[in-house]
Design a protein around this nucleic acid. Structure first.
Lengths: 254, 254
DNA sequence: AGGCCAATGCGTAAAAACTACACAATATTA
DNA sequence: TAATATTGTGTAGTTTTTACGCATTGGCCT
């Protein structure tokens, strides 16, 4: 067994762990970051454990940074999962056996495989900036389109659904986009982000009116060229006003 | 040490516990249920631990029932608290000493006093129906008006604030009242509940129009007499429609 | 018993927000 | 240089929200 892993396991909380639904936006698609486990044929959300001396939020920030290289981005708790049947759809015996095979028999106390409370965090990240990195248990990363997520290990499919629901609700009282889009973006790009998250089409003109009315965008003199059509203006978030809107939680009627 | 307590401690998770913000509504005031600890001069929220074989939601239901006698009421997770400085404002040494004095030296592993993740649940209960019952650690219950909550143990003051914020937000997309009001109630009573939770005055006529438009109320032929004024009609929630509205999470613009 | 008071029941007009479209402008490509 | 796809802006109609008026009524006071 990897000595680093051993130290990690021994210096972290046993009964609680963190799982992150990391949303990225690319090519008009909303995606989540998945990891493929070593030794077994299964994918899961990135996750990790909490060191004894850190807060759960600090742990979430650390885990996210370890997986994506990113810090200081949108990251927040959305639900805590603690069913005692979180593994009901899985062959736990087989899983434990395979994990033993992969990591040694003291990998996990079986008790904690079966009984674990998981704090769900969701993150919104700028797709291009992410350097996806596997962890001890996994050897492969994948950005998976939200509508094409395969059957995941544990209750991670449910977690994604709950996270998406929370994200959609969030859209109605907080602006979103700061961490999902590049610094400069066009109005149609912002609209596509909203449409993707909400899963429905929005009227171009009304959307623009609404977004501008929130007074969190700064219109730049530049335009984005490159397409065979009229060049759209670039915008950027006014961070100060954006943060104020996040704080105030004004109702955004999207 | 109480043998029941010992069994309880040994058969529950150690690192995670549950704290409940139990809201009640009485005499036009929103109140929370508080417990006074044995041995030390401090109040806290009702809480408890999670048995190995139950889900966290089941544990919350059980804890709530133990404290209030009520089941099948509005109860939901609102946040999970896991700061490593949840006790920063407290003299932990003194607390542990007093707890030892009260419960025996093996009351708690000091480690778990200092490092504990707490799942915050909030409940809305019908004040009159509650039979408040202390637990092992406490010997007194009190309904405390929300604006007059004293300094509580741990980070429980913060918990109440977060719960109240979550409750206010909830009001905008789910009906509230079914578990906070008696079966039959008048429109002004319902309005007072909303005003109390939201902390602001609402227009009587617009409120009535709004509530009726949601189509979750059933107007009864009876009136409430007793005051020196026109007797208001009684209403009652149409449980089926109410539940449907809860499910659909339609936006309620209060 | 009858008038007074305080609170309710019901209604309407103005303001604001939202929705649905129409048409001109403009980078690229053929 | 014309064709095309897409953006920029405006406006009218509809719905929702807000603000407020006035008649009604159960109990209390005289």
């Amino acid at each position: 067994m990897d000595p680093g892993l051993r130290i990690y396991l021994e210096s972290t909380l046993k009964e609680v762990s963190i799982d992150c639904v990391i949303f990225g936006f690319h090519a008009g698609e909303l995606k989540v970051l998945l990891l493929k486990w070593k030794g077994i044929d299964g994918w899961s959300l990135p996750g990790g454990r909490i060191y004894l001396e850190e807060s759960v939020n600090e742990a979430a920030v650390r885990i996210l940074q370890e997986r994506t290289g990113l810090k200081e981005i949108f990251l927040q708790q959305f639900y805590t999962f603690g069913s005692n049947d979180r593994y009901k759809n899985m062959d736990v015996e087989a899983l434990v056996k395979k994990l033993e095979w992969a990591f040694g028999s003291d990998f996990y106390d079986e008790k904690y495989i079966k009984r674990n409370v998981s704090l769900g965090y969701m993150a919104l990240v700028e797709f291009e900036q992410v350097v996806a990195t596997p962890d001890w248990y996994t050897d492969e990363c994948m950005w998976c389109e939200i509508s094409a997520v395969p059957k995941l290990l544990f209750d991670h499919n449910e977690m994604i659904e709950v996270a998406l629901k929370a994200l959609r609700r969030q859209l109605s009282y907080q602006p979103i986009g700061y961490n999902l889009l590049p610094e400069k973006f066009t109005m149609p790009e912002l609209q596509r982000l909203y449409e993707t998250i909400l899963g429905k089409q929005l009227d171009r003109r009304n959307f623009q009116k609404l977004m501008l009315s929130y007074d969190i965008l700064e219109k730049l003199p530049e335009k984005r060229t490159g397409g065979a059509f009229k060049a759209p203006f670039l915008y950027r978030f006014d961070k100060e006003k954006y943060d104020r809107a996040m704080q105030e939680e004004i109702l955004f009627a999207v």
